[in-house]
């Protein structure tokens, strides 16, 4: 499993900066980030090289922050990669709540971050039915 940092933010200028600046000061490197918005507020979700430290820094700064487990999958960087995953999860009645992806320079792979209504089962199915490798936090740290 991969640890994701989620932060509740008001949806207005400069709020994201307050988070990214805190992370910079703590020497935390972002691997991937996404913002989900719902009107007046949003949630920033990020994959970082040191989630424990990132959590600590943000909590000390009084943010509403949560560390959650998500599924990380290494997918060959080519057409249909995501479609296979969506298909097997769907046929096993697993709902994807959100997902985002990132690539790393020099590797021919994309990395998917998935939150589903049953992460354990999702991980198992992806491994068994697609033969794909799910990644751990250590993999993220070594990227």
């Amino acid at each position: 499993m991969v640890y994701q940092i989620s932060i509740f933010l008001e949806n207005r200028p400069n709020r994201l900066y307050s988070v990214t600046e805190a992370l910079r000061e703590g020497n935390i490197n972002l691997r991937a980030a996404m913002i989900a918005e719902a009107g007046d507020f949003g949630i920033v979700r990020a994959i970082v090289d040191d989630p424990d430290m990132a959590f600590k820094i943000l909590e000390e700064k009084n943010f509403s922050v949560k560390k959650t487990q998500v599924v990380g999958v290494e997918v060959p960087d080519g057409p249909g990669g995501l479609s296979d995953i969506a298909r097997v999860l769907g046929s096993n009645d697993i709902n994807i709540i959100y997902l985002y992806a990132f690539t790393v320079a020099g590797k021919n792979m994309a990395f998917l971050i998935l939150k589903t209504d049953d992460n354990q089962k999702a991980k198992k199915i992806i491994k068994e039915q697609l033969g794909l490798r799910t990644i751990s936090q250590r993999d993220i740290n070594e990227l």
Binding site: Q4, A36, R45, S64, K66, T68
Partner: peptide, 10 residues
């Protein structure tokens, strides 16, 4: 929003 309240779910 309190810290206890927030759990990543929109």
């Amino acid at each position: 929003m309190t810290k206890d309240l927030f759990n990543d779910s929109m």
